[in-house]
Each structure stands twice: as C-alpha cells, then as structure tokens.
C-alpha cells in the first residue's frame, strides 16, 4: 500500500508576520481528485507553493511522495495561473512545452528528438496539434492555459497541481478542460485550486476549503461549514444565507468513484 501523495501536518505560514495559513492539515491519497476552494487572498496559492517547495512553512511539516517538497518537484506537473505574455516573446509553443522536461542535471543540453516527440504528443492531447511553431504569446488565453497543461503533462507527472485553471478557459471552446482532467487516468493524482465553486462539477473525489484555516470533506460535497469559511457567517435574515443554503443543495453527494 502506497502512502499519501501529499501529507500536510499542522502547517502555518505567514508573510511578514501576517498569517496566511494557520494550523492546516491535509492528506491527499493516490488517485484523489481534490478541489481546493477559497476566496482570493485566502491562501490557496500559498498552499500550492508550499507543496511545490517554493515556500517553506513557518510551522508544521509537509511531505510530498514521502519526501521534502523540493525533492519531489520533479514528479509534479504544475500548471500556474495564466499570466500575460507579450505577443513577440521569442519562444514557440513547442519550446514552452519542452520547459516541462527540464531537469536540474540537464544544464546546457538541448532537447533531443524523443523529448520533442513527447512535447508534440502532450500538445496533441490538449488539442493544440498544429500550433507547435506558433509563438506562445500569439495564443489566446484559453490556448495558453492548454499549452501550460501540456507543459505539465509532458514529464508524465504522478501529481498534477492546477492554479485557477478555469480563469482562462475559452468560453466558446470545444475543448472541455474537465473532460481532459477526468481522462488522465487512474495513475494521476490531481489538486485543483480555485475561487470558482463550479470546479466541483468536475468529477472531484474530495473538496477542501481554505480561508486561512482549512476544512475538508471526503466526497464532492460542500458542507455548511465550508460555505461559512468561503463566504463568512451570516444571520438567518440575510439574503446571503438563503443563497448559501441553495448552493449547498446544488452539489448533492455524488456516488463515490470506484
């Protein structure tokens, strides 16, 4: 039996004395599809950066694949939020994808034919076949998002971390992002971080809410406790409360995936 993929124990983190995360514990098991919801500024991205080893916790411990996060980064596919790239940035979509195959020991080495093939295959998987030689800045926001997913997939990661993946999806796109995530197969563990509650409509297997503290539920349900963490405490007379109750009803427990 394999141990947990991510094991966060009583972790706190503060930026310049300002607490961002307080006493957070979370376990992600192999094959989980976890959605981490939370308001902007609630500490979601900080949580991802801690798992990636880009930040170190102020207290508590994080193990990824049973190791220090920094040492596990090679087994993680990371899809950051799409940021603006100027259109004339001199890099093709293929070269951007090849960034996903960089290794600490590979300095000065040019990517070989096998690596190029892997990158092409990853681009095909996300529906970007034929755009390999376009400049990365020429792609639309949604296409860029897909190129970043290809860059994360190209190394065959066991854990995929996505930061706000729905923020740049082409609204008119034929490409279904959640279909892609579902068809990645059993081997890949996925953590999606978002402020957009609709990611729960993907086939997530568990949900966590982060707003400085963290609540967690096994199964794709938003508990009233989570909604409180997301939107704050409201009195019964408040219109927000009725909305939150209706939201809770929108996401009934789905049958657990086998």
């Amino acid at each position: 039996m394999q141990g947990p993929i991510i094991d966060i124990e009583r972790v706190s983190f503060a930026y310049d004395g300002q607490p961002v995360l307080e006493d957070i514990s979370l376990r992600v098991d192999p094959g989980d599809f976890l959605a981490v919801l939370g308001p902007n500024g609630g500490g979601k991205t900080t949580l991802l950066r801690l798992v990636l080893g880009l930040l170190a916790p102020s207290a508590g411990s994080i193990r990824v694949f049973g190791r220090e996060p920094r040492l596990a980064a090679g087994r993680i596919g990371y899809v950051p939020q799409v940021v603006d790239v100027r259109p004339d940035f001199p890099m093709t979509v293929l070269d951007a994808t090849l960034m996903g195959l960089m290794t600490p020991g590979g300095r000065g080495r040019r990517p070989g034919p096998a690596e190029r093939d892997a990158a092409r295959e990853a681009l095909e998987r996300v529906g970007l076949a034929g755009r390999e030689n376009a400049r990365i800045g020429e792609l639309s926001g949604g296409q860029k998002q897909r190129a970043y997913i290809a860059r994360a997939l190209v190394s065959g990661p066991e854990l995929l971390l996505l930061d706000e993946p729905t923020s740049s999806i082409d609204p008119q796109g034929k490409f279904c992002f959640f279909d892609l995530l579902s068809e990645l197969g059993r081997g890949v563990t996925i953590v999606v971080v978002s402020h957009d509650v609709s990611v729960v409509s993907a086939r997530v297997s568990c949900v966590a809410c982060v707003n400085r503290r963290l609540t967690y539920s096994r199964g794709p349900e938003l508990t009233p406790e989570m909604l409180t963490l997301l939107f704050g405490v409201h009195r019964h007379s408040c219109a927000m409360d009725a909305y939150m109750r209706s939201l809770a009803g929108t996401f009934p427990p789905l049958p657990r995936m086998p």
Binding site: L52, P80, V85, M99, G100, M102, R107
Partner: peptide, 21 residues
Amino acid sequence: VYYRDFLAVSFDPEFARTRGV
C-alpha cells in the same frame, strides 16, 4: 551553458524553479 535556463526564467521564473532551475 545556461541558454535554456535563461529562457525558462525569463518566460516563467516560478515554473522554472519547480523544474530545478
């Protein structure tokens, strides 16, 4: 020696760091 690393950092430093640059 650092060609790919420079390119990766100028494009996306945070991602580059996760790849050990």
